[in-house]
């Protein structure tokens, strides 16, 4: 119905019940309904990657998903990943390497980088560049981001050894 539809989902582990308009996309639901403004909106047509979040463990563009499609899903945003400590080392590497300037792409970039590191613990620079190739950054020129991801991968590999 055009009328709001009930949706229940987990957001950063917290059960959420909401009535949403069918046309509301997940990015706007997170930002406007739940006030989780760390998920950024840069293009609203699925190109820039700033709105990247995790749904059921997989990264997605939240502007290309309706909130109603997230029914029954577990959604994780930058706020949740920060509070859980899951990406604390990656964030520290970004800080140390100045891998962000304006910071607008950063939440999406971190979530995408973490996705790579979960799948491929020791990616080379080309693999890092490839995995991040759908996330726009207009400030850094990308090299510092690649450095930070590479450094995090090395540190994690050392700790795992």
């Amino acid at each position: 119905m055009i009328a709001p539809i009930p949706v229940s989902l987990l957001v950063n582990g917290e059960p959420i019940e909401a009535l949403v308009a069918p046309r509301l996309n997940l990015a706007d639901f997170l930002r406007e309904t739940l006030k989780l403004t760390g998920t950024h909106v840069g293009c609203e047509h699925g190109v820039c990657g700033a709105c990247t979040v995790r749904v059921d463990g997989e990264i997605v563009r939240s502007c290309l998903l309706l909130a109603v499609q997230a029914q029954g899903s577990s959604v994780e945003t930058i706020e949740g990943l920060s509070d859980s400590g899951e990406i604390a080392d990656l964030q520290a590497a970004f800080r140390a390497r100045n891998a962000l300037q304006c910071g607008y792409c950063t939440p999406g970039m971190l979530i995408t980088a973490q996705d790579l590191l979960r799948q491929s613990p020791t990616p080379d620079r080309a693999a890092i560049r490839e995995h991040l190739s759908g996330n726009y950054c207009r400030c850094t020129g990308y090299q510092a981001i690649v450095d930070a991801v590479e450094a995090t991968a090395k540190t994690r590999a050392e700790q795992a050894a």
Binding site: R61, L65, G134
Partner: peptide, 9 residues
Amino acid sequence: VAHPAIRNR
């Protein structure tokens, strides 16, 4: 095909 986040959906 596009990028990982797109390929996931």
